[in-house]
């Protein structure tokens, strides 16, 4: 339960961090808040040769509204975003769901971008980024690019990030006027990883449901409306499509059953907001 040896680089600028990533050829990892990476290091599930600490790079922790989106920098901590005045107006789904992320004692150091990079299928932030149709801004020495959440999460803890790229920010669109939102989660205790988590958005009769904790990555789908007789069948079909798995915490059948219930519940709450 102790990390294997690594070089530690305290980057002073983003250029230094990108240079280190390019040089290490896939054997470097970015260290931000460390709340996902340190458990991986302690359990030796990750054994990078170099850790690049980006938390002392000036300006990387910025959170700002930019072209209709919240731009959240790589070093922005979860607790800092939760404490942002006006978050509930800017993006109510984020404000509602963020207290479910870990515990106060991990949100204090954990970053949003770090959780996105880690891409745990049960984590709330990848689910929220997908539900809200956000984007990931990646940068390497070669190029800068933006990837839609839909294309970013490619499998179990796997993403579209190339080995020499770092996430420099995520972009989350501001709430659309007239849109309803809801989030719900089932876990063993508050702050644990989700057995299943659901987020719904409803606007002008269109329903978008995102589900985490069931498949190997968060998944979002258009769903029939609350009053549609098709909704139950669609939720049931989604549970099978996501290949819900049995594990220590819950059976696949339980996950499908909870998807039917929780899915309907969040869609109902989101729809009630716009009535």
């Amino acid at each position: 339960m102790k990390p294997a040896a690594f070089d530690y680089l305290r980057a002073a600028t983003q250029e230094e961090a990108l240079e280190a990533l390019a040089r290490a050829g896939g054997e470097a990892r970015i260290l931000a808040g460390g709340q996902s990476l340190l458990p991986m290091l302690n359990m030796r599930l990750a054994r990078p040769r170099v850790l690049v600490d980006i938390m002392r790079i000036p300006g990387l922790d910025g959170v700002a509204v930019e072209k209709g989106s919240l731009r959240i920098g790589a070093a922005a901590r979860q607790a800092a975003l939760l404490a942002r005045p006006g978050l509930a107006a800017e993006q109510p789904l984020l404000a509602e769901a963020m207290p479910w992320i870990g515990h106060a004692q991990t949100r204090s150091r954990g970053t949003l971008c770090g959780s996105i990079a880690h891409a745990d299928p049960s984590a709330e932030l990848p689910l929220l980024l997908l539900a809200l149709e956000g984007e990931v801004a990646l940068r390497s020495r070669r190029r800068a690019r933006r990837v839609a959440a839909q294309d970013f999460f490619t499998g179990l803890m796997s993403t579209a990030r190339e080995e020499d790229e770092m996430i420099e920010a995520i972009h989350i669109p501001l709430a659309h006027p007239g849109e309803g939102h809801a989030f719900a989660e089932i876990g063993r205790r508050h702050g644990d990883f989700a057995i299943i988590a659901c987020a719904a958005r409803v606007r002008e009769g269109a329903v978008r449901l995102a589900v985490g904790g069931v498949a190997d990555r968060p998944v979002a789908r258009a769903m029939p409306g609350l009053d549609s007789p098709e909704l139950d069948a669609a939720l049931e079909a989604l549970g099978w499509e996501l290949e819900a798995r049995d594990d220590l915490h819950a059976s696949a059948a339980y996950r499908r059953a909870m998807l039917r219930r929780l899915g309907r519940a969040v869609i109902a709450r989101a729809a009630a907001e716009v009535r």
Partner: peptide, 25 residues
């Protein structure tokens, strides 16, 4: 690995897990 909370300390006034923090940080 950050689950039990026994190692919680305050870093610059806020609670954090000492086992999920490198000393060099």
């Amino acid at each position: 690995h950050g689950v039990c909370g026994a190692c919680t300390v305050q870093i610059d006034g806020v609670p954090a897990r000492a086992c999920l923090t490198l000393a060099v940080q």
